[in-house]
Design a binder for these strands. Structure first.
Lengths: 215, 215, 215, 215
DNA sequence: GATGAATGAGAATTCATTCAT
DNA sequence: CATGAATGAATTCTCATTCAT
């Protein structure tokens, strides 16, 4: 029973990601999500309060997965710059690997005023927390500068990643997002590293490819 | 007639900013905006195609004003770093000076799927264009690095500013946004400058004040 | 404009009586009422707050008409017993003449919890007020007793009339309701005791006819 | 098993009276009634066809109890007037003693269209039957008049009692209902005419107390 | 008999938008 | 140009009821 119940919740979440990505949040019908999950419309409301709750739950659940997966990976790196690079790469590849989820996170989710007004504390704070850990670790190790507030650095990193992914989504997801990793890390680390850019030695990879709107 | 007409258009836009900020985009009633502008509901449709067009027009019009005002100011600076600093300061102070507008731009506007899907080319591209000009100028002058794509740098700058302002809005606009200017510029320029951070000599100003969620 | 507006309100009320009587309050569709009034569904909501408000407005409007019509007639009688007889006759004939309205008042209206909880002060109080005037007048003239509270008498009269009409409605409106007038007046004025109080001299009319469930 | 089963049925009925009185028929949730009876929602449907059946069963069961209890008491009186007085007193005190039941009978029950359309033959007919027996007995004994139809008299008695109790419920059950007994009996037996028919000798008791809306 | 998770029908209502005046 | 009364499309969500366990 437990299992079947958890299973249903997940089926609804998966269906929601697909339908939200395909139709957009407002056009998406709850009945359509239910059908795609193989359930009756009313059943959705046994697991989620309403349509917006469903959208936000998608974000929360997936973000939690991301955060724990990312953290496990990140902590295998001993070098602060590598940790940052690891995060950036996973962030970009996470979305590149799941276009539906990318559309949900970068576009549809923003149409929830509850989300935009940061009425959702969980997921985003969790993610910002992970970034901040990396920042604090880098400072402790002497790899990242300490004169600028850690919060500001955290938001610079998140803001940059978010904007880059959004631009990729908007431009039709046509170019290779992950290939921007090195350039991004270089930009960010050279900014937050105390000395010049040679601390983090990374060759600057190829651009995202043809049509890269970020060029 | 011309004047009165332009006047009405402006009155509607001003009313819209207030009502959108106060009620949020979806709760905002067109009839309420009309009333606040001293007009009948139908009249709004003589000037704007629909409610979303009104929201986006607010963005376009205000952004155009911003861009031309910012550009005039920016171009008075001869030094690339100063130009960047000027932009950052104006961006932050522009929103700090008009909380209603800030709420509109950072929260309500995102609820327009047309905006989020970048169906709006004008305003945002204009603003990104202004940032890019500064970046290109800095590169030409040898103050900003050339190994990383200018587009990426542009998005780093915009993404960071946008995230910082969003965070300020969400946290209740309680701290001083403008006072973050120097730290932000330092972060950005030290990242994008070819050599170490001493190119742009700026003292790191005070933090945003108590309750600054960016710390 | 005024006239057309008033006209629409009336058209809606008339349509509502018909639809409520035909379908019952809950089965009645607002869209059906609108259609029967030759209007769009939304228009109903320009004149009435919601479906229940429509039902209650039917009651209020019609009761006000009844009360002013009844009062005009009643006051032409100089004798208290005649006044009472006049009221009873008009009450019964009012419903007998309009079966749809009878169904609305005796059945559908009771399904509004707002009405049943006496959330509606206007109409019913108005009608009870009219009955009470007759009672007070009769007491002043020495025709009605003073040892029993006027309120109780008022409710005896109203309760009896209401129950008699309800019974008639429920039994299919098959017998002649008005013909019960004289018996009712006699009962009310003289009670069920054996000797006819000859104060109010009225022959006892025929029964309501075949199938009269009140026999 | 039998006993436990009957017990559950009763627990459901008791819970229903409380919930209907507290929430009103429509707002009342079957699951809430079940919970209050210490059972699962589905179990209610082993004992009752549906929610309306539950409401009507409350009425039927309680009315049957009333009728047999009232009849036993009434028949101990040998005098027709005393029988009537006994009925009136028991009717009033029955409701006064159980405010939840009063709310159910006078308000919620009327919201059942099946009840209002007299789709329920049992309980009400039973009660009307009891009243009628008293009327017929009074006629046989020469205490009640024969010129008026017994049915009409029955309905006068019931309508008056019903209206008086309804008014008491609506006004918040604040005054003493039972103390109206004597006045009511006097009114019914002797009418509203001026001279007290001394047939039924009963002192006119005190009014219902302060705030009595029947005054 | 008892359970309670799942069902799915069903319509009131809002409000952006129109267009006759 | 301006009005504002009228329109009508469009869908979430509830909760009584069922039935597999």
């Amino acid at each position: 029973m437990r299992v079947k119940t958890a299973d249903k919740r997940l089926r609804i979440l998966d269906a929601a990601v697909r339908v939200f990505a395909r139709e957009g949040f407002f056009k998406a019908r709850v009945s359509q999500i239910a059908e795609e999950a193989g359930l009756a419309p009313g059943t959705v409301y046994l697991y989620f309060k309403n349509k917006e709750d469903l959208l936000i739950s998608v974000f929360e659940v997936r973000t939690e997965e991301f955060v724990s997966r990312f953290r496990a990976e990140v902590e295998q790196q001993r070098d602060p710059c590598s940790r940052l690079a690891c995060l950036v790469r996973m962030h970009l590849s996470g979305f590149q690997a799941d276009p539906d989820l990318a559309a949900c996170f970068q576009v549809e989710l923003r149409q929830s005023s509850r989300f935009m007004r940061r009425g959702v504390k969980g997921g985003l704070q969790l993610y910002l927390g992970l970034i901040r850990e990396i920042v604090e670790f880098g400072r402790k190790e002497g790899a990242f500068r300490k004169e600028v507030s850690a919060g500001l650095i955290t938001h610079l990193i998140f803001g940059t990643l978010d904007e880059v992914v959004s631009t990729w989504v908007m431009s039709g997801m046509k170019y290779n997002l992950v290939s921007l990793t090195d350039q991004l890390v270089e930009l960010i680390t050279s900014g937050i590293g105390p000395k010049a850019s040679l601390l983090c030695e990374r060759g600057l990879g190829a651009e995202g490819g043809p049509g890269n709107t970020l060029n």
